[in-house]
Simulated assay, not measured.
Amino acid sequence: MNILIKIRELANLTNSEKELADYILANPRKTLQFKPKELATAAFVSTATIYRLINKLGLNGVGELKIEIASSLRETTEEKEINYDYPILESDTPYQIMTNLNQIYKGTLDETLSNADPEELVRIGEKLINAKIIDVYAASANLFFAQNFRFQMQEIGILVNVPEEDYIQRLSAANSDKNHVAIVISYGGRSETLQKAVKILSENNTPIILITSMQENALAEFAAHKIYMASAENHYNKVSSFSTRQSLLSILDTIYSIIFNYNYDKNIHYKTNNYQKMNNDLI
């Protein structure tokens, strides 16, 4: 498992260990440069806290921790130079803008893949394939991606519910039960509407698949499964959500493809047959 995800999901941490974990997640590259005492000073913890956290990660020392972090980070020169929050400058030509965005997209896909847990993807696929009803809960611009996922699934005969308004989301959650599976899209858990819906889903024992960032998310405790988006962007101070959008699209496309692959021949036939029926109706 990606060491940053492992740190993110560690349970039963002391307050100081949590402070250290949060610092490493927010500053993985700086962590690589620090000696133990320097890391302790930067994170406002003791050196002993560092070694306790390392033990909980099942590692043998600071050196191994750095190796694991380094392997989890994007390593190309282009990715280090690009600013994910401000990838375009006033002086950039249109072609330079396109080139910069291309670097962000490549880095985003690499990070999304790095964050993925292969075994978790298998479990998520099985959960969705066996679900009687799939509901997708999202807010703001993420609703458009949820609607696109619904369209993809409808093309292979699987109906997906995407409630949009606050009341409808809460009503959908209230109608949900253990036979439903809820996909919740939330970068940081800040939407009050999603907070209410997730609480209801949890009370109704509905399995929740949370698509979230590597940052802290209060909804994570309610999720049976988690998929992590690329998390390099600042949530507020940026030109646009270039990386987050690309990462979310990649994850939803992956989920769709996993489900498609489960009954590959059947889905190919279903899709092509339906398109033929629709085209035959054209005058």
Rank of each mutant, 00 (worst) to 15 (best):
A43C: 07
V45Q: 00
V45Y: 00
V45G: 01
A48Y: 07
T49G: 03
I50A: 03
Y51A: 03
Y51T: 08
R52N: 13
N55A: 10
K56V: 06
L57C: 05
L57T: 06
G58M: 12
L59W: 08
N60C: 14
G61C: 06
G63N: 03
G63E: 09
G63C: 08
K66F: 01
I69N: 03
I69Q: 02
A70T: 13
L73F: 04
T76E: 10
E78G: 10
K80D: 09
K80I: 07
N83G: 00
N83T: 01
Y86N: 11
I88V: 15
I88W: 07
I88Y: 05
L89V: 08
S91W: 06
D92M: 07
P94R: 09
P94S: 04
Y95L: 12
Y95T: 13
Q96L: 11
M98C: 13
M98S: 15
T99G: 12
N100V: 02
N100S: 06
N100R: 01
L101F: 01
L101S: 03
N102C: 09
Y105D: 00
G107H: 06
L113S: 14
D117A: 10
D117F: 10
E119L: 15
E119F: 15
E120Q: 12
R123K: 12
R123C: 14
G125F: 07
E126H: 05
K127H: 09
L128G: 04
A131R: 02
A131Y: 00
K132I: 06
I133S: 10
I134A: 02
V136E: 07
V136G: 05
A138R: 07
S140L: 12
A141I: 15
N142E: 11
F145C: 13
F149C: 02
R150Y: 14
Q152A: 08
Q152Y: 08
M153L: 05
E155A: 11
E155C: 08
I156S: 10
G157D: 02
G157R: 02
L159G: 07
P163Y: 01
I168S: 10
Q169Y: 04
S172N: 09
S172Q: 08
D177Q: 03
N179Q: 12
H180K: 10
